[in-house]
């Protein structure tokens, strides 16, 4: 379950990065549809955080330690929303670039989360 969510968040984040990167090349700021995309990615990250905490509560352990695991889950949850708020104050193509960069950062966090959990059991 957790591994499936990790893959889902990573793929959604890369799609969001491509979409906002496209807006950047078209010289466009982030628009309503982009924010809906960010919301979808954020909901997935929230589901991942909840699932991760439930699995810890059930006695499962993250390979590299609980503290690092929870810290990365929280970081993954806040990355895209923070970038989204920054793009609200920067109504130019550079706001789109900021969200695209944030989505790439989230994808990298997901790769690290995969390693930290040490999981293969989908």
């Amino acid at each position: 379950m957790l591994d499936a969510l990790t893959v889902a968040v990573a793929v959604a984040a890369l799609a969001l990065a491509a979409w906002c990167g496209f807006a950047f090349t078209r010289d466009q700021p982030t628009k309503d549809w982009h924010f809906i995309g960010m919301a979808v990615v954020t909901v997935l990250a929230l589901a991942q955080l909840v699932t991760g905490i439930v699995q810890l509560a059930r006695g499962e352990e993250a390979g590299e330690g609980t503290a690092i695991f929870v810290a990365y889950l929280l970081g993954a949850l806040f990355t895209v929303p923070v970038a989204g708020f920054m793009s609200l104050t920067e109504r130019s193509r550079w706001g789109s670039a900021t969200v695209a960069a944030g989505a790439v950062v989230l994808a990298v966090l997901e790769v690290r989360l995969w390693d930290i959990w040490g999981g293969v059991d989908v």
């Binding site: 920054m86 104050t89 130019s92 550079w94 670039a97 900021t98 960069a101 944030g102």
Partner: peptide, 21 residues
């Protein structure tokens, strides 16, 4: 923090959080 500066401060912010934690 405007234009490209927004992207720059975002990346510096991410590196700060990453390196500090």
């Amino acid at each position: 923090v405007q234009g490209p500066g927004m992207l720059l401060v975002w990346l510096y912010g991410v590196m700060s959080v990453g390196a500090v934690s």
